[in-house]
């Protein structure tokens, strides 16, 4: 009986001498280009929640997502994924990278059919043909484009393309889904559709979602927890509703009230 308590967290393991059990944990991540654009001392994400990363343009939001997705190498620091530090290279790194995916601010669809786009991540993971077919059809249904299976991706509208990019990202059921401004270029109807789909994901899959947005209202609608990033630094984290009603930091407050000039 007590064993169930022992594993609740806080124990030390060989992977994680710090004894940290967060799903994703960033420690002392620093990235500079011509100047320092990101300096995150510590930032932890729990499994199954939706996180919002908010902050003004240039705050380092995209850089942060790219570092988490292992596309950009930080100058310093360690990322712990499920308690283990992500190795700098090798097959173990690829294996970890395959548990997460990033939908870019301006997603790129491959110049082939919608079907092949959605199937891409499944093919790289060696899914069977029947399974691929099944999942692609189900996803097309979910994003409301069942008739567009054979359409060339280049002929889609912006909103349709964004939905296909989301379907492609969730097809292989990643543990961690990173969304960079998923609705920035969409009209209100499509924004609503995308938001609905994102909320549905939380119910249908075991997934942790991190959404970058500069729209505080969207963050409020979608996210459980919020991270306010300013000038490369984490200024404030906490429950989204609390952060918006009673921000602790002056800069957070300024951003929320729209007083922040950027």
């Amino acid at each position: 009986m007590p064993s169930s308590i022992v594993f609740r967290g806080g124990e030390k393991s060989i992977y994680n001498p710090a004894g940290n059990t967060a799903f994703l944990d960033l420690k002392n991540i620093v990235k500079s280009y011509d100047r320092e654009v990101l300096n995150v001392r510590t930032l932890a994400f729990e499994r199954g929640k939706i996180y919002g990363i908010i902050g003004p343009s240039g705050a380092g939001k995209t850089t942060l997502l790219r570092i988490i997705n292992l596309l950009t190498e930080p100058d310093r620091g360690t990322i712990y994924f499920e308690g283990r530090p992500i190795p700098p290279n090798g097959p173990a790194r690829l294996a970890l990278q395959r548990q997460m995916t990033l939908v870019f601010q301006k997603p790129l669809l491959f110049s082939t059919t919608v079907r092949e786009n959605i199937a891409y991540g499944l093919r790289t993971r060696g899914y069977s043909r029947e399974e691929i077919k099944k999942r692609v059809s189900a996803l097309l249904e979910q994003i409301g484009l069942p008739h567009m299976k054979e359409r060339h991706a280049g002929t889609l509208s912006g909103g349709e393309a964004q939905r296909v990019a989301l379907a492609r990202a969730v097809a292989f059921k990643p543990k961690l889904l990173l969304l960079d401004e998923p609705t920035a270029n969409l009209d209100p109807a499509n924004v609503e559709l995308m938001e609905k789909m994102i909320l549905q994901l939380k119910q249908t899959m075991e997934v942790t979602i991190i959404i970058v947005t500069h729209n505080i209202f969207q963050a409020r609608r979608l996210t459980d927890e919020a991270v306010f990033l300013y000038d490369g630094q984490v200024v404030e984290t906490g429950e989204t509703s609390k952060m918006f009603t009673s921000p602790r930091d002056e800069r957070t407050q300024a951003f929320i009230e729209g007083r922040m000039i950027y």
């Binding site: 997705n69 596309l71 990278q97 990033l102 870019f104 790129l108 891409y120 991540g121 790289t124 292989f172």
Partner: peptide, 19 residues
């Protein structure tokens, strides 16, 4: 013209270096 973007999209979807 769009190779870097394609490469990163592929990698983000789980492709290794060769793929």
């Amino acid at each position: 013209s769009r190779g870097k973007e394609v490469e990163e999209t592929a990698r983000s979807l789980g492709a290794g270096p060769l793929l």
